[in-house]
């Protein structure tokens, strides 16, 4: 049972705890109990959604497939959880920079960093691509009439 934590039953349990917390949160909100003019509670539909999730999480703990391990989880490591978060943080940072510096300045460093991180070699190729791709994308979108964030380069265009 050393791998029990990867089984459907365990996942159901984690979900039950998370969703249970969400359900309690909504139940505590005053808006959820406000009655609308057609007699419906404002919180009815959200609570139905959470209720359905709760029910399914409970079912996962008990149903015939409870002992099975999801295919993609069998060889999962802890890095599987934090690496995507690092990736998302990088993308978020890139968008944040994009809205300040503009698309053309923010995306090359991002592309370069991620291409090198993912293992693209030689470095020279990564540098060239990181510069060429944003320029092509920017030109293409401008041609289509979509205005990508221009940022501090705004005066030039």
């Amino acid at each position: 049972m050393s791998n029990w934590w990867r089984s459907n039953q365990a996942i159901g349990l984690y979900l039950l705890l998370i969703i249970g917390a969400l359900f309690t949160y909504i139940l505590w909100q005053p808006w959820a109990h406000r009655v609308m003019r057609d007699g419906f509670l404002l919180g009815m539909m959200p609570m139905m959604g959470v209720g359905l999730m709760l029910l399914c999480a409970a079912a996962m703990i008990m149903d015939p497939l409870r002992k099975e391990q999801p295919e993609n989880l069998q060889d999962a490591r802890t890095s599987d959880a934090w690496l995507p978060i690092v990736m998302l943080a990088g993308i978020g940072l890139c968008f944040w920079a994009m809205s300040r510096l503009g698309f053309l300045l923010a995306s090359p460093p991002f592309l370069l960093a991620f291409m090198l991180w993912f293992g693209l070699r030689p470095v020279r190729l990564a540098i060239i691509l990181a510069i060429v791709v944003p320029v092509v994308v920017f030109a293409f979108f401008t041609l289509l009439g979509v205005r990508l964030p221009q940022g501090i380069l705004a005066g030039i265009f």
Binding site: L15, R37, L42, M45, P46, G49, C56, M60, D63
Partner: peptide, 30 residues
């Protein structure tokens, strides 16, 4: 193949879909 997981997914969709304004009263919910 796992019905509970499929319905769980449906529940998540239902929950996410209710975020925003109530369709009748236009009051913010969730």
């Amino acid at each position: 193949r796992h019905l509970a997981k499929g319905m769980l997914s449906a529940g998540i969709g239902l929950f996410l879909g209710t975020i925003g304004a109530d369709p009748v009263s236009n009051v913010a919910r969730n």
